[in-house]
Nucleic acid binder design. Structure first.
Lengths: 250, 250
DNA sequence: CTCAGTTGTTCTCAGTTCGAGTAATTCTTT
DNA sequence: AAAGAATTACTCGAACTGAGAACAACTGAG
């Protein structure tokens, strides 16, 4: 930026005011289905519509901590609790079209959160209006949040391919089948159990064995599975690629 | 966002003012080296330092058009010119730590641009202070731009793997060798010519033949190469993966 | 308790892709 | 004319892939 331009706005009243907010696409898996956290708006504009949780960035906080704070407020979890510390949070994209909020210019930094199954905000007794909704049952959202959610889902689906983030949907110890269920829920397609097993164990640093086995077998039978925890890899080599679909190539 | 919070700032004077800017990591390849566009700052803070080109987002423009405008201003290219229309522009990440600019809270939306070799801004006779610098000769930059540039390079290097964006560094018609030179420059390592040739032609929609051949052979000999143009693929299946490096797996 | 069905895990097998090397051909420079 | 370089094609063994099968361990129903 040139300084002439900067000085023109050094007096904050000289330019049209801009508000900076964060919105969070928080994803979790409940009952084998990929769900997003939504809130219901009480006031105009878009009163009665559903929207992504979010809010204003405060004066002394970073964008990351603003997103984490908003997530904590809506899920009624307090910072420092285990469940919240396990959440993976990353910046998604920034949305700033003029007119995306009818009241004033709002630039919104969207975040993507992957969480292990969290308690239902309603069950906490808190007066929160947030709830988890399966992503395939979400209709139109307020503002441009429909597009933000779609971008978040795209990002989540492709991040599972080349990073170990699927483990962020699970608790500290998990079985290979639970991991496969995460991939199936996020990608929306079943995976070959044998091949998945082989590939996960062949990727260095993806998972490491705890030596223990699960307390019981599957819901409807089967042997007790071995337990694993997340390894130290930050990238998967080789990647777990989705079955190639013609339509995304174009 | 809750409306109580929104209303608290509906009066723009109630909260601390925030400025929204765009910064552009513009990359091109000159003489076989990956270069970034930098400007030299004339005024405090960081007077005399180099920085990424950027500036304020105006009242009625989108973030994308603000980035394109800043790029056009610094490269002295006018919108509508072919060279500028060929530029690939995508959002990179947003940086908003309090204190990243000592004067006030500045939230900066960074963009990544891939450009075919553009004319030297200085040669245009314009009084612009922008110039292309090979990325391995760039030292410390102003503000947090060193980190922004590093993020942009990371993104560029990985996008080459699974998207056809390498063609954005080339003019409309190119040879496979020129394409290989792009990969070599961005990744900083040589590629096996035969294998690269085979892989590029085997990816559906990556390149399509024009039927013509180059006017002359390589700089220091060799046959005339066949010419190709970019195909209609938006993703590469299978991807062109970099040689696996241990250090990025961690 | 028994049995049928489900699940975790390991193998096999054929097709594909990969990296590395070789080679023929064509062109530029000296 | 000779030397060197670049484009393109081909070969080979290693590695990886998807699909299927095998087998043992376990569950819930009857």
């Amino acid at each position: 930026m040139t300084d002439e331009e900067f000085l023109a706005t050094y007096d904050p009243h000289a330019y049209a005011p801009v508000a900076v907010t964060v919105d969070v696409v928080a994803l979790t898996i409940r009952d084998g289905r990929l769900c997003a956290l939504l809130v219901e708006r009480g006031e105009s504009p878009y009163a009665g519509w559903r929207a992504l949780p979010g809010g204003f960035v405060r004066e002394a906080e970073t964008l990351d901590s603003a997103a984490l704070r908003e997530l904590a407020e809506e899920t009624a979890l307090r910072p420092g609790e285990d469940a919240l510390d396990q959440v993976h949070l990353e910046q998604l994209r920034t949305y700033g079209d003029p007119g995306r909020d009818p009241r004033m210019r709002v630039v919104s930094v969207a975040y993507l959160a992957f969480a292990p199954s969290l308690p239902d905000p309603r069950a906490g007794g808190d007066a929160s209006s947030a709830f988890w909704v399966p992503v395939d049952e979400i209709g139109e959202l307020a503002f441009d949040h429909t597009a933000v959610l779609a971008d978040g889902l795209d990002r989540a689906r492709s991040k599972l391919e080349y990073t170990p983030l699927a483990t962020a949907f699970l608790s500290a110890e998990f079985t290979i089948s639970e991991l496969r269920a995460v991939y199936a829920a996020v990608w929306g397609e079943d995976l070959h159990a044998g091949n998945f097993h082989r590939k996960v164990l062949s990727v260095p640093g993806f998972v490491e064995s705890t030596g223990a086995t699960a307390a019981r077998g599957g819901e409807r039978g089967g042997p007790k599975a071995r337990l694993y925890r997340a390894g130290d890899a930050r990238l998967l080599h080789p990647a777990l690629l989705r079955p190639t679909r013609e339509e995304d190539v174009r």
